[in-house]
């Protein structure tokens, strides 16, 4: 009698303890994995304005700094320099926008006006005005960003590139 009572108490205590532990720990795990479920650091604009169409002369690559804002958990940081791009306006007013970071190891590439090519100072990577690789160790053409023009404003999609 006393023994079976104690046996029951033992099982019941284990069950209670297990339920309690699960009930306490579940929300704690839920809270801890939050950064897996939601972005915590992200840009606030899909398309970032980089200037007016007329700011970019036809056929001459222009280097432009990109500023935007980012959310960092609870903070918003505005007017942040996100990086730089080369912008080339074509005859038909369409635009090519390339990352200034070389697809080899990320050095900043320059525009050589005399040869009319993009030249990487680090390992002699060479790209044409359309971003295509001509020579050098880079595995691909320049990174290029999608653009659109709204009310004469040039917007680029800085978050993704091809």
């Amino acid at each position: 009698m006393e023994n079976s009572r104690r046996k029951f108490l033992k099982i019941a205590s284990h069950a209670l303890g297990g339920t309690l532990a699960a009930g306490v720990v579940a929300p704690l795990i839920g809270l801890t994995v939050h950064p897996l479920m939601k972005e915590t650091v992200y840009g606030t604009e899909d398309f970032i304005s980089i200037g007016r169409v007329d700011d970019f002369p036809v056929g001459v690559p222009t280097k432009t700094t990109i500023t935007s804002s980012k959310m960092d958990a609870w903070n918003i940081f505005e007017g942040l320099v996100m990086g730089s791009v080369w912008v080339i306006r074509k005859e038909d007013n369409s635009l090519n926008v390339f990352s200034v970071n070389c697809p080899h190891l990320g050095c900043g590439i320059n525009w050589g006006e005399d040869v009319r090519q993009f030249l990487c100072p680090c390992h002699e990577g060479v790209f044409d005005i359309n971003g295509r690789k001509i020579s050098g160790p880079a595995p691909r053409d320049l990174y290029s960003f999608e653009t659109k023009i709204e009310n004469n404003n040039v917007l680029i999609k800085f978050g993704s590139f091809t």
Binding site: T44, K70, H104
Partner: peptide
């Protein structure tokens, strides 16, 4: 509610290049 767009650190060209390097 600031639209969520791209994720920092995962999509910038720099990060991908650094990683490759």
């Amino acid at each position: 509610d600031g639209k969520k767009t791209y994720v920092f650190g995962l999509t910038s060209p720099r990060a991908i290049i650094d990683f490759k390097g």
